[in-house]
Simulated assay, not measured.
Amino acid sequence: MAVYSEKIADNDRKIEQLSKNIKRDTEKRKKLMEENARLSYQAICEQYNCTGQDLLASAGGDAPDKRSERCRYC
């Protein structure tokens, strides 16, 4: 019976460690995804030579006369 109790306790420790790893890795994944979103946004601004405000204005459907002169694709 003691063998089973030891094995159960060992498995419980492993489960707890895996839970901590999952939480840590999930947080790390979220940070990397946020960084990729920011980098993609910056790459688009650079590619079209415009500011973030220009991109937001074009996505919001503002009239062409309200768009920046710098952003010819927005």
Rank of each mutant, 00 (worst) to 15 (best):
K30V: 11
K30T: 12
K30A: 13
K30S: 10
K31P: 01
K31V: 02
L32P: 00
L32N: 14
L32M: 13
L32G: 00
M33H: 07
E34F: 06
E34T: 12
E35F: 01
E35K: 03
E35S: 04
E35A: 05
N36L: 10
N36D: 13
N36K: 12
N36I: 06
N36Q: 14
A37S: 11
A37C: 04
A37N: 10
A37Y: 04
R38S: 11
R38K: 03
R38P: 02
L39Y: 04
L39V: 04
L39N: 13
L39H: 05
S40L: 04
S40V: 01
S40C: 03
Y41L: 09
Y41C: 06
Y41R: 02
Q42P: 00
Q42A: 13
Q42E: 15
Q42K: 13
Q42T: 10
A43F: 07
A43D: 14
I44H: 06
I44C: 04
I44Y: 06
I44F: 07
C45D: 01
C45L: 02
C45G: 03
C45N: 03
E46M: 02
E46L: 02
Q47K: 10
Q47I: 02
Q47P: 00
Q47C: 07
Y48S: 08
Y48N: 09
N49L: 06
N49A: 13
N49D: 14
N49W: 03
N49F: 05
N49Q: 14
C50E: 10
C50S: 08
C50A: 08
T51V: 01
T51A: 05
T51N: 03
G52H: 03
G52S: 09
G52K: 02
Q53P: 00
Q53C: 01
Q53W: 00
Q53E: 12
Q53D: 12
Q53K: 08
Q53Y: 00
Q53M: 01
D54L: 04
D54W: 09
D54A: 14
D54Q: 10
D54P: 07
L55T: 09
L55H: 08
L55M: 12
L55F: 07
L56S: 13
A57V: 04
A57G: 04
A57I: 07
S58E: 12
S58D: 10
S58Q: 09
S58W: 09
S58F: 07
S58C: 15
A59H: 02
A59T: 02
A59E: 08
G60R: 15
G60K: 14
G60M: 14
G60F: 06
G60D: 15
G60N: 15
G61S: 12
G61I: 13
G61N: 12
D62I: 09
D62N: 02
A63F: 13
A63V: 15
P64D: 12
P64V: 10
P64W: 05
P64K: 13
P64F: 06
P64E: 11
D65H: 14
D65K: 10
D65E: 14
K66Q: 11
K66Y: 07
K66G: 01
K66N: 11
R67I: 14
R67K: 14
R67T: 11
R67V: 07
R67S: 13
S68Q: 08
S68P: 04
S68R: 08
